[in-house]
Each structure stands twice: as structure tokens, then as C-alpha cells.
Write a protein that binds this DNA or RNA. Structure first.
Length: 230
DNA sequence: GCATTAATTCTGT
DNA sequence: ACAGAATTAATGC
């Protein structure tokens, strides 16, 4: 082992994109159109052409990779302030992921010509935001790969819950055991058991249904050393 | 807006 | 795989 690295900014590689700079988009909203999606809606799927980008303004979107056999692996969640579809648009390729709605969402769609001739050309702050958005996805990808290699199941659940709590900051987390399992590549039951373990250890509230983090530091410590230092 | 109910999803073993 | 709990969507007031 090289060295244990303390994680100073968990939110940057937590698979949940949320940004608090929605206001910087206000002046260009007229260039796009408002879109509303109900819970469970399928927004895009593999192979769908990318005609523009979506600015998520509220709600929660799930982005997943799908195998030919139908296996699902969630890559990240997207909330307010995040941008969807920019990677597909800028690479000139179709969507490769299954994108669906977990919590009713509202977005603003900007067609390709607007993105290319207006947003990227005339609004540096928005261009920067697109880079931040892609950077976050990049870090999420590499972090997930590291975790999958170096940590066991309960550790990964602990680390994810820690990160989600850092992002969410209040009330209970809006993710089910199944959603967590899809993010970590674990079986749902494994996640339920891990959560039970973390709950008994005192890191999570006892309440059933709805996960509330009671001891973030404890969670982080467990993720690094499940033996509790013994 | 609010209560009731039917259908679906979630959780813990 | 199962069963009880919880959540959501639909319906009628």
C-alpha cells in the first residue's frame, strides 16, 4: 500500500451532479425551451441522436449504462444545475446511456446551433460550466473504478452514502437500496445488508425507509478502515 | 384541496 | 422468494 489518502472534497467525485449556479443560465433561457418530465419517464436511450443539451433545473435524473442482456449499471445521478447530453453532442455521437427520471424533473433544452453559435461563443461562464460538468463526470468515473477495485461492498456503500450526504445536506437521501445497488454493481440484498450493518454501527439513523446519515465522519472512517482501527 | 383506494415499489429476512 | 410497509397515482368528493 502506498498511502492512505484523506478525501478533502468528497462532492467532486460523488456520482451525483448538482451545481448551485443556475442563475448564470437565466440570461440565455430564452434561447431554449422548457421541458417537463414525469417520474419514470425515459428521456434518452442508447443510439438516440444528440440534437442539443439539457440544463436540469429541478428533479433527479439517472444515467445508466445498459448491456445487451439488459443489465443496468448506473453511472451517476443528475440534479439541478447539471447539464445532460453535452458529451454526446460535442463528440458528434449518439447517446450511449439509458437516461431516466427518478424524481419529477424540469429542464431547459438548447438545440445544437444555439450551443455552438451562442453559448460556447458568447458566454464564457457557461462554457466554463460545461467544462466543470464534464470534469465532474470524469472524476466520478475514475473514482468509481478505484473504489470497485480497492474496497469491499459495505465500504463502498459507506463511501457512497457519505458522498451523497455531503451533496444533499438535509433530510433523507432520495435513493432506494436498488438505486444504490445499480450504482455500485452490487445485488440489492447486499446493499440492504450493508445498510443494516452501518445502521447497527450507529452511522445511520434507525428509521426504516429513507436513509439518514447520523455520523458522516464515522461513515468516512469505516470506508477507509472497516475494522474500526482494531 | 383532501380523503380513499388501487397499484406499484421498497425493505428486511 | 416472500410479506408487510411505504409510496405513488387515480378517483371522487
Amino acid at each position: 500500500m502506498v498511502s492512505k489518502i484523506k478525501d478533502p472534497g468528497a462532492s467532486i467525485d460523488t456520482p451525483w451532479l448538482v451545481f448551485d449556479n443556475l442563475p448564470i443560465w437565466d440570461e440565455v433561457l430564452y434561447l431554449g425551451r422548457r421541458v417537463v418530465w414525469p417520474r419514470g419517464a425515459r428521456i434518452r436511450g442508447p443510439g438516440d441522436p444528440a440534437h442539443g443539451i439539457f440544463l436540469i433545473r429541478s428533479g433527479l435524473i439517472k444515467v445508466s449504462a445498459v448491456s445487451r442482456e439488459g443489465m443496468l449499471r448506473t453511472l451517476w445521478l443528475m440534479g439541478a444545475g447539471s447539464v445532460l447530453g453535452e458529451a454526446a453532442l460535442l463528440s458528434g455521437k449518439p447517446y450511449r446511456h439509458e437516461i431516466s427520471v427518478m424524481e419529477p424533473a424540469e429542464a431547459h433544452e438548447f438545440p445544437e446551433p444555439v450551443v455552438m453559435r451562442e453559448l460556447l461563443e458568447k458566454y464564457p461562464a457557461l462554457s466554463r460550466q460545461l467544462l466543470v460538468n464534464i470534469a465532474a463526470k470524469s472524476y466520478i468515473g475514475s473514482s468509481q473504478l478505484e473504489d470497485a477495485v480497492f474496497l469491499n461492498g459495505p465500504q463502498r456503500v459507506a463511501r457512497l452514502l457519505y458522498g451523497l450526504d455531503q451533496v444533499h445536506r438535509s433530510s433523507s437521501l432520495p435513493v432506494s437500496h436498488l438505486a444504490i445497488a445499480e450504482m455500485l454493481g452490487l445485488h440489492r440484498v447486499t446493499v440492504s445488508n450493508a445498510i443494516g450493518l452501518l445502521r447497527r454501527a450507529g452511522f445511520l439513523d434507525e428509521t426504516t425507509h429513507g436513509i439518514r446519515v447520523a455520523d458522516p465522519d464515522g461513515l468516512a472512517a469505516y470506508a477507509q478502515d472497516p475494522s474500526g482501527g482494531h
